[in-house]
């Protein structure tokens, strides 16, 4: 494992949590001279302190990046401007697809013209495996999706990985690392899935109890950081080992489960608040093998169960069925028995 930190690092999607955090971490590395953060919008003011060591550039990846990367003499590019759910303020699903697919194409075109480039790190997702009844229980990196995913995010991810494959062929000397992240959890992470879990009453699919996997954001950041400062060519599943079932997750977080028949939940995707990607996840679940990641990076993310508990700790306000209430209920049963 070679530890040659790149001198100039470009991070896309720096106005969002993951991009801002990793840009700041890399900027703090004395081996790295410059970190340039690209985004089409200015990062929120709350990130001002965090991003003090990062040069910010307003670049819209959906339009050409031109020779920005080449002029910066970028040695590593970290592509995190990949949206997992539509943002109504940024053009909804159409805007999301534009950003994910066209944005990646432009960025990779820019990378190809950058002769100084040594490393490319791309955010992907375990959604790359799609969802089917004929899927194996656990996906390894070489499992291919059986069907094209129904959800927009899953389809975008397949496109993005396709373009990265093309880039790898054209620039074989660049170390390309594709990280297939499980859904993020953590006290500070904000995703559509986590907002869903933060509700007091959580709609689920009747008769399905999917196996879920999460990765703690801190572990995701560590893997990203290592991908930038060390050489880790290849595609890797990034998830907390082990699983948690949806019902178990809801019980642990004290949420009330509202089972809904699948067609109804599917119809609800049109109203927003839940996406087709999510419905598929709630029907099929998704579990990946992390052996390749742990071996290559010499790092094991905390388990899904531990990562999820960390999320619960910071979202206790929405809990309805808390352990205290369960205890008082069980005590009540005991006392009734004692009297009898």
């Amino acid at each position: 494992m070679e530890s040659t930190a790149p001198r100039v690092v470009v991070v896309t999607g720096v106005s969002r949590f993951l991009g801002a955090q990793i840009a700041a971490q890399i900027a703090a590395d004395p081996m790295v001279e410059r970190v340039i953060g690209l985004d089409r919008v200015d990062p929120p003011s709350t990130y001002a302190d965090l991003l003090s060591g990062v040069e910010l550039r307003k670049v819209d990846l959906t339009k050409s990046t031109g020779n920005t990367l080449a002029k910066l003499r970028a040695e590593a590019v970290v592509h995190l401007a990949v949206a997992s759910s539509p943002d109504p303020a940024a053009g909804g699903r159409a805007g999301m697809k534009e950003q994910n697919v066209i944005g990646t194409m432009h960025l990779l075109a820019g990378c190809q013209q950058t002769s100084t480039l040594k490393r490319l790190v791309v955010r992907s997702s375990t959604a790359a495996y799609g969802a089917s009844f004929r899927d194996p229980a656990v996906f390894t990196e070489d499992t291919e999706a059986r069907d094209v995913p129904r959800g927009g995010y899953g389809r975008d991810i397949l496109d993005i990985e396709g373009y990265v494959r093309g880039f790898r062929r054209r620039r074989p000397e660049v170390t390309a690392t594709v990280l297939r992240f499980a859904p993020f959890v953590g006290p500070t992470a904000e995703t559509m899935l986590l907002r869903y879990f933060a509700q007091s009453v959580v709609p689920t699919v009747l008769g399905r109890d999917p196996r879920l996997q999460f990765v703690h954001v801190d572990d995701a950041l560590e893997i990203l950081r290592r991908s930038v400062v060390e050489d880790h060519p290849g595609t890797f599943n990034v998830a907390g080992p082990g699983i948690i079932t949806l019902s178990q997750a809801l019980r642990r977080s004290g949420r009330v489960n509202l089972p809904v028949v699948e067609p109804l939940l599917q119809a609800a995707t049109r109203l927003g608040g839940v996406s087709l990607d999510q419905v598929d996840l709630f029907v099929h679940g998704r579990v990946v093998d992390t052996a390749k990641l742990c071996k290559e990076f010499g790092f094991t993310p905390r388990s899904t169960s531990v990562a999820f508990d960390d999320f619960i700790k910071s979202h206790q306000s929405g809990a309805v069925v808390t352990p205290d209430r369960i205890d008082s209920f069980l005590d009540m049963i005991k006392s009734v028995r004692a009297r009898g």
Binding site: V138, L250, R252, V287, V321
Partner: peptide
């Protein structure tokens, strides 16, 4: 009751295949 409590607060193990 101890079993019920473990189940209600979700403190049990399920393997990668979903075996409880």
């Amino acid at each position: 009751l101890a079993f019920l409590r473990r189940r209600l607060i979700g403190q049990y193990e399920v393997d990668d295949f979903g075996f409880d």
